[in-house]
Structures are given as structure tokens and as C-alpha cells.
Design a protein around this nucleic acid. Structure first.
Lengths: 298, 298
DNA sequence: CTGAAAGCGCTTACAG
DNA sequence: CTGAAAGCGCTTACAG
């Protein structure tokens, strides 16, 4: 200890990693690190990782996972101990690459029917049901929806399905022209909303499959002189930080993203440290946050 | 090559790192990774890093840099090749720790008078001047400000100073009671705005030192029945993604955060790769984005 | 219990 | 030009 002091010895984790075959590092893949969505998850992952003595390497795979495979290779060479894969479908080739690496993986906000990989997500269908049902309980019966792409098996189709189911269970007819499709982003929903306002049968409420789309719809409605929630009620999905910053504050489905990040990190590290040989998936519970964009219809 | 194929050889970057004394990894410190602010910078850093064959380890130092020193130690042990330090004052002890590591550092959104360390930031004083001057050019003369803490030498005091200078240069008296102090976050500015509305001499415009505070002020004003921009003009600072999502869309000072991240990454890697022995600081130019929260006063 | 040796998977300098 | 050896900084198994 005295020698350590005198010589200013500093441990070298790289050398240690080489012999232990453990780098105390995990890799996290995001389609878009800069989205509010991703950064909340990252926050949770990072928090637990650092508590447990792990570092996290972030990878931005960009649209359509263009760089996913390349990143997987980098993570392999860097000998990461585990991987968190978020918000993208796990393609066959990704799965193969990860399998060859022989390190544990956790999925966040996505899942795979085909491969048995533990995931952490909310039940999108149920959450969408919940949102729609809430509007119905508030007295709305003409409810439009702005959905994500129906080809999206995670956040697209299931949410539409939840909406449809809620209508059905309440004896309300599903009218296809009351559904417009966007891409979860702001601009797409302004267009979608414009279209709904012009072409769909009249409606008193809209459920948007993301907060960003809810806000786009809201802005579009306001520009056309509609008052929220007096003339039109809107509910979103995500509860990103800005949902309570807009005016009026957005009523929405809260996804506990930071907590989901934490859970994913916990599971992954348990697997890495061999505390367990298997880990279960978690369906975390969403909840509805009532703010000021939905009004009761008399 | 045939053998590589047959045996399924995979290179081990850890072993390589041990002998080369280069890990092709950089560490990035943020006070809050999950803020929209940080994640834009991270996006830029990551983009260039991956292009140049570097990985990035993210570190969330939490409020008041509680974990900064601990992280610096981790990065040292992991033998990162360089560090990007963002949005926090570089304390003496941080500087010493980094100096001992003998790796290059780049500062983003902060700087140090004391130590000669290259930084990338906008000129806060000038940008604040610009925002204030813009309001004046639009015919406003009674202009309030919601500032950050005056003890903040980066984003607090200099912005207030820019505001004050712009008033002075236009022959407008500076009235201290027209300045309220917040902490750059939403809630603080609602309070600040309430106070201004109740106690300050009447004003027709307000300059907020962050978008979040601008939006808090906007919401507060709207709740009190004021119309934006008809009754009150507001200009923000940052141009975060949600600035154009609120209604009406916020006029604000744009900081090119992603680009700043890219520049920091470029500079750091140039230093790491010994292309250069020194690198200059960059004052990047902000610009004013006109949206719909400021109106011309006749 | 202490201390020297072997080995993790590479790269580089050097001998042949 | 090719190929074996040394060494990066650790940890672990083993000899003393």
C-alpha cells in the first residue's frame, strides 16, 4: 500500500479484462440516442450499471438499423460482457451475431416471438386499450386514432388493435376512415390530423400512438381554431418530459422508461455475474396520467 | 485468411489495447444524460467517434458532479484515449485527475479561465445580446428576463450580462426588478414568471435563458389569460427539439448542439491520433430562429 | 503463507 | 521476407 502510494500505481482494467475475460462493460444499442425516449432508457441503464461497477458503451444504430451489424462486431471485439438492444426488431442476422458472441442480451421496448430472449416492455395493446377506454368512460364515442405504421409489430399494430378492442368491448363501431397513419413523429401527425379533420366522420376525441404525434395533432387542431379540450380531446402515449410542458398539458399513457432501463440493466448484470442462468421477461405496468387535454362529455 | 474463416477467428480488441496502449475508446461526462440538451451533444460525439473507429462510454455525473471524480477514476482504469467534459465547471480536482491521466480533454458548453483546455461553445453573452436586441428591433422596450443562477459563470451571468448590454446600447434603462432568477428548468420559471407578472413594472416581452424556462413562462402567462404573442412576446434559448413542438412554436436562439458534439469529437480524436499537438477552441455561431412567440410592436 | 511463473491474445522488434 | 520470441499489465494456480 505504501508502494502504491509512492509509485502512484494505477490499476489497468484492460490488462485485468484480458485475463479475467470480463471487461465490466456493456453495450447498448439505440436506433436514435438523441430521442427523449432513448435517453430516458439510457439514463436508467447507466444508473444501475455504474452502481454495479459496469461501464456502458452507447451505439447509435441510425434509421433502420443500418449500423447495427457493424456495431455488434465492434462490441464483440471490445469483449463487452452483455448487450441491451432497444426499440428495434431483432432481425435474424442480429440474433445470429449476438449468439456467436456468447454474451447475454436483454431487449427493451421490443421483443421477439421467434427467439427466447428476455425483454422489458409495457403491454402496448393493453395500454392502448386503456387509453381508448378512458376516452369512452369520459363520454366520447366518436374517437379517431393516429397510429404508427401497421407493419410495426411492437408499437404500431398492437396499439391499433388495443384501440379497436376497446371500441368493440364498448359496443362502438370501428370506422377505418377514423384511423390515420403516421410515423410517431410530429410532422407526420400534422398531416394525419389534417386528413382526419377533412375526411373522417366527425369525432370528439383522438388517441395518438405517441406523445409527439399527439402534440402534432394538437397543434394542427389549434391552428384550425379548435380549442383543446373543449372542442377536441386528445390523449397521447409515452409521457415524455415535454408532455407536461405543452399547453394545455397532455393527458397520456406513462411508460416508465427510466425504470425500464434500470430493470434491463439489473437483469443483464445478473446474467453476466452468473447469479442466475435465466432471467424472466417483464411486462411493466403503464399508467394513465390525467392532465388537461381530455374533457368529460356530458 | 482461410484459417480465419475455418476457425472462426475473431480479433480481441482488449488484447490489442493492452499492447498498443490505445483502446479506441473515449469517455464522455454529462451532468444529466437524459436531458434533451445532453443527448443532442452525445449524438454528435457518437457519430464522429464511430466514423473514426472509436467507441464512447457515457458517464452520468448527476447533480453537482457528485460522481465526476469516481467516473474519472473508472475512465482512467479503463484506459480511455480521451475525454469530453460537458456542461459543468471544471473544478481544480477534476483538472488534476485528468492531468494525471495524460489523455486529451475537450470541453463542451463550458470553459475554464484558469486552465488552457480547448472548448466548444457558443458565445453566451453575444447570443443573449442578440436575443434581446431582436426584441428591441421588434419595437419592445419594456423587456423582462428570466435568468439562470447568476453564480453560473457559463449560462447564468453571461446571458444576463448580454441582456443588460443590449438594453444599454439601445438607450433603455436596466430595471433590476424586471429580472427573475430560475434554474433553467420549467417549474422555476413558472414561479419566476408569476413573480414578474405580479411585481415587476409592466413589460411587453420576456427573454428566458433556456427554452424550458421560456415554455414555463409561456404556460404561466397563458394560464393567466395572456395571449402569446399578442399580449406578450417570448424568446427562449437553446432551440431544443420541443421548441418547435409547443404552441405557438417558440422563437429562440439556436445552439447547434449536435454539431458541437461532432466538433468536440473531431478535435479530441485529432489530439489522440497525434495529428496535431494542439487544437484550438471554437466559438460556434448561434442563430436566431423566428417562430411565432414574438410579435412586432407597432 | 509468500513469491515466482505461466498465460490471457495481441503487436512489434528482431533473428534467421 | 518469414517466423519465433518478447512483452503489454494483470490474475491465478502452483511450488516452496
Amino acid at each position: 500500500m505504501q508502494a502504491v502510494e509512492e509509485l502512484g500505481y494505477q490499476p489497468n482494467a484492460i490488462a485485468r479484462g484480458l485475463v479475467n475475460k470480463r471487461t465490466q462493460t456493456i453495450g447498448v444499442l439505440f436506433p436514435d440516442v438523441s430521442s427523449s425516449f432513448s435517453s430516458d432508457i439510457l439514463h436508467g441503464i447507466e444508473e444501475i450499471a455504474q452502481e454495479r461497477g459496469f461501464s456502458v458503451i452507447v451505439c447509435n444504430t441510425a434509421a433502420e438499423g443500418k449500423r447495427t451489424l457493424k456495431y455488434l462486431q465492434v462490441l464483440r471485439e471490445k469483449q463487452v460482457d452483455g448487450i441491451v438492444f432497444t426499440s428495434e426488431v431483432l432481425k435474424e442476422e442480429y440474433f445470429q451475431a449476438i449468439k456467436e458472441m456468447r454474451v447475454p442480451v436483454i431487449l427493451v421496448n421490443t421483443m421477439s416471438q421467434k427467439y427466447m430472449i428476455p425483454y422489458v416492455k409495457v403491454d402496448d395493446r393493453q395500454a392502448a386499450y386503456h387509453a381508448t377506454d378512458y376516452l369512452i368512460q369520459k363520454g366520447h364515442r366518436e374517437i379517431a386514432m393516429i397510429s404508427g405504421s401497421l407493419k410495426d409489430q411492437i408499437a404500431g399494430y398492437p396499439r391499433l388493435d388495443g384501440y379497436r378492442q376497446a371500441l368493440a368491448d364498448n359496443g362502438i363501431e370501428y370506422i377505418e376512415s377514423r384511423v390515420a397513419v403516421g410515423d410517431f413523429q410530429l410532422e407526420s401527425s400534422r398531416k394525419a390530423m389534417k386528413k382526419l379533420l377533412a375526411e373522417a366522420p366527425p369525432f370528439t376525441a383522438v388517441f395518438a400512438a405517441s406523445d409527439e404525434m399527439a402534440i402534432g395533432a394538437m397543434n394542427c387542431a389549434m391552428e384550425q381554431g379548435l380549442k383543446i379540450p373543449d372542442d377536441l380531446s386528445i390523449i397521447g402515449y409515452d409521457d415524455l418530459k415535454f408532455a407536461r410542458m405543452v399547453y394545455p398539458p397532455l393527458t397520456t399513457i406513462h411508460q416508465p422508461l427510466t425504470m425500464m432501463g434500470r430493470m434491463a440493466s439489473e437483469k443483464l448484470i445478473a446474467l453476466i455475474e452468473d447469479k442466475v442462468s435465466q432471467v424472466s421477461s417483464s411486462i411493466v405496468s403503464h399508467h394513465l396520467v390525467e392532465r388537461q387535454t381530455v374533457r368529460s362529455k356530458p
